[in-house]
Design a protein around this nucleic acid. Structure first.
Lengths: 210, 210
DNA sequence: ATTTACTAGTGGTCAGACCACAAGTTGTCT
DNA sequence: AGACAACTTGTGGTCTGACCACTAGTAAAT
């Protein structure tokens, strides 16, 4: 409905209404939301406006549509979104270096957090993983550490950075894997020695000064 | 065009095309992109599909439309996006805490970077800004510092975090502004004293141990 | 030279028409 | 009764054409 005061665009209004509707009805991921035609009627809007709203939310990864079935709330993880944004945002060379730098700093942050939050069990598992040298991978190793840091936001950001970093060509500051370096890192983590931890990390990444 | 193999939805195809077009033509924020009708013709798609794509990008904050004028690339800030997302996600306390923690760690990272990269001139300007106590704001202060850190990615992430943080209710770990604390911070920055810098920062944020 | 009126172009919205697809319903044959 | 096929209904996906509201530039009138 656009006849009265509503200065905002219809599709934005619909986004709002949908949000309220979801909150009011306590809808959860997987739940179905009304069809486009029904929303169109209930909200006094054209179906095209409803679609503009739904497509926007879909691009954001908040809903999922299945032709012939309907539209459903989605388990939001943010992956898709950031991936999309990154393709728009990260273009120039400078940005590539920023990706590496940011990844490094966040890894160090998470190492510090892991000192406080990683328990013996996880540490042990990580050590065992390190021993299977055949299937070892730096990404997996740090994924576990950052999980242990117990900060979901950091984890999300890191995953994006990691994927982006790996997709770069050429990959800046490429480092070779040296298992011994990772062992030092784990030792420092076990001893809760922050200085040794960061030192081990920098060696592992071939970094002199930061 | 939908007649042949294209399995993906038209509006997603258009989003891609737009991205390529922007990259190919080297368009920057503020630049105008073709009208809906022209895109519709050039891409062999209906105008409604073009609109679905444009509205999606608009909700993401990547473009801006002005009725009667046209559609323009926008300097991405993520503002409205964050507001929208925060209502969809970020419900539990844990997530809110993560936002605060992540913001703090990134600010510390940028402080370290600023030690190396901030020149005297910027430092002076920041000092002058600090003196105008009436219009001082913590967000603005750190925005400048993180700019000085010269890592665009950190800046983008931080801006989003800042907005997330400010949109939270209640705001966790709220801190009161004490100008003197900021002065200490700037002194440490001028002296390139990392230990003193981080110490000053923690005091400023009312943090004991991290 | 200034102001006014007009015109073309743009986004905003709606309504209706198809199509493609999924799931249930009905009907028929065995 | 059971199995299979055909039909019906409801959904999203897309296109087209029609208005409206607004902007900016142009032409006309003063």
């Amino acid at each position: 409905m656009n006849s009265f005061v509503s200065k905002t665009k219809v599709y934005l209004e619909i986004v709002k209404q949908l949000r309220d509707m979801i909150a009011a009805d306590g809808l959860k991921s997987g739940d179905k939301i009304p069809s486009e035609r029904e929303l169109s009627e209930r909200l006094n809007a054209g179906r095209s406006s409803v679609r503009e709203a739904l497509r926007s939310l879909e691009l954001l990864g908040l809903i999922e549509t299945r032709r012939g079935e309907g539209t459903f709330l989605r388990d939001f993880r943010g992956n898709q979104l950031v991936q999309l944004l990154s393709t728009f945002i990260l273009q120039d060379e400078k940005a590539k270096n920023d990706v590496f730098e940011t990844k490094v700093y966040i890894e160090m942050d998470c190492l510090k957090l892991a000192i406080q939050r990683m328990n013996q069990e996880k540490l042990l598992k990580l050590k065992q993983y390190l021993m299977k040298t055949e299937e070892f991978h730096d990404d997996e190793f740090f994924y576990r550490i950052i999980q242990a840091a117990n900060n979901h936001l950091f984890l999300r950001i890191w995953v994006i950075l990691k994927e982006f970093y790996n997709s770069l060509d050429p990959i800046p500051n490429r480092y070779d894997v040296n298992i011994q370096d990772y062992k030092y890192l784990l030792d420092a983590l076990a001893n809760k020695d922050e200085a040794a931890l960061l030192s081990a990390y920098k060696k592992l990444r071939n970094l002199s000064v930061l």
